[in-house]
């Protein structure tokens, strides 16, 4: 069985899919007040807005992978990483409504989280070197 449809139909279908996805991509996302650093889906650190004002730098290791997270003036970013692609570093600081910072090789995710998720788990696991 073969479907014979004109090329323009497929071009239109693909364009339509792209447009829908772009709209979803640019829709403003709701974001919590706190910032969480996750490794392998586990919350390693969480910071409230005030805590982000204090300057600090955190070294997070994973199987030989290293990410240095820097916090200053209310922003958080990955300053250094030894992962092959370096996407997390070029991502720049985490912005409200923007994409989460993801370092796939080191299983690291930095994103906004709800205020309720904070506290207890703070700096418990041995991620910090």
């Amino acid at each position: 069985m073969k479907i014979y449809l004109k090329s323009w139909f497929w071009a239109a279908l693909l364009s339509f899919i792209c447009v829908v996805c772009l709209i979803i991509w640019f829709l403003p996302k709701e974001a919590g007040d706190n910032v969480g650093i996750y490794q392998n889906g586990e919350l390693l650190y969480s910071f409230t807005r005030e805590e982000l004002e204090e300057e600090r730098s955190i070294r997070i290791e994973y199987n030989g992978g290293i990410n240095v997270v820097e916090i200053s003036n209310g922003t958080i970013r990955v300053a250094e990483a030894n992962c092959p692609d370096g996407d997390c570093v070029s991502h720049g600081p985490l912005t409200r409504g923007g994409a989460p910072i993801v370092c796939l090789p080191n299983r690291l995710v930095i994103r906004f989280i709800d205020a309720g998720t904070d506290g207890q788990v703070d700096a418990v696991s041995g991620g910090a070197g």
Binding site: K29, Y38, N40, G41, E42, A99, P100, V102, L104, R107, V109, R111
Partner: peptide
């Protein structure tokens, strides 16, 4: 692998 749904973003 990362156990994080956020990657769906």
């Amino acid at each position: 692998v990362t156990g994080t749904r956020e990657v769906i973003y």
